[in-house]
Design a protein around this nucleic acid. Sequence first.
DNA 1: ATAGCACATAAACCTGACTTTAGGTCAAGA
DNA 2: TCTTGACCTAAAGTCAGGTTTATGTGCTAT
Lengths: 146, 146
Amino acid sequence: MYTIGQVSQIFGLPISTLRYYDKQGLFPNMERVSGIRKFSDSEMEALRVIECLKKSGLEIKDIKQFMDWCVEGASTYPQRKALVEKQRERLEAELVHMNKVLDMLKFKCWYYEQATRYGSEDQVQSMIPDELPEDVRRAYENAHHD
Amino acid sequence: MYTIGQVSQIFGLPISTLRYYDKQGLFPNMERVSGIRKFSDSEMEALRVIECLKKSGLEIKDIKQFMDWCVEGASTYPQRKALVEKQRERLEAELVHMNKVLDMLKFKCWYYEQATRYGSEDQVQSMIPDELPEDVRRAYENAHHD
DNA sequence: ATAGCACATAAACCTGACTTTAGGTCAAGA
DNA sequence: TCTTGACCTAAAGTCAGGTTTATGTGCTAT
């Protein structure tokens, strides 16, 4: 059992955020001892799930929906499964996109390295795309495709 | 040369967003013909860079800084290089984190699949972590490490 | 000529996710 | 006793990143 201050330390989240999550109904089963919140292992796991669902692009109100399904019991396994699968697909697509963005940044890193070396972009501009080094060209094309 | 409506189509962004970006100074060199914005190849590339820097976690005002450096010329190559390198590092770290999140979602997918099959979580709970199938265990541990 | 469409502006509005503020309870140590 | 620190609440405030609204301009097809 942890106090809100301890949980704040452990997760690196402000106390105000934890209280905000609680107010939004993200810890539906949290115990209180004379008003004081008690975070059990179950709330700690909930918090891990919250951070995960947030990162996957879900809004707070949808995370609440998920937590409510958890309270409802076994009858909501299908909904919960559908939700995590949707988020998984979303995130997989997102990762593909992120890799394109990363390739753009890799290309720009190289670009400004050359520009700095030669004091001008003209040289490097004239190389695009056919005379680029192989790996840079692949990054450039992945970033500019679609 | 493109009109704002065409650019909106091409990038799938609302016209209002393009005007908002312009107002924030993200197209410092954009031409106008009797008040009408003309997006040239240079603005199209700028827009690609904007989307990329946004995805890498930069705020609009920092993207404006970058665009201002572009206007300033060759003397700002080092700053621009430093910025894209920082964002590249940020994004690489982010991708590592995202992969952990993805593993959590993969685990939860499997978890709710089992729970749905057996009508209860008890079975699957008792398997954590040592009796999990190899790939599921790897996902579980990657997600719960750190 | 007039209706409709694509463009323009300034300013107000909206949303999500917090954070801050102002006030209060309670237990422990000096 | 009294002050400090950790907890509590409700309500107001903040911020980024847009979006909407109200109003106007100028071309073109009927």
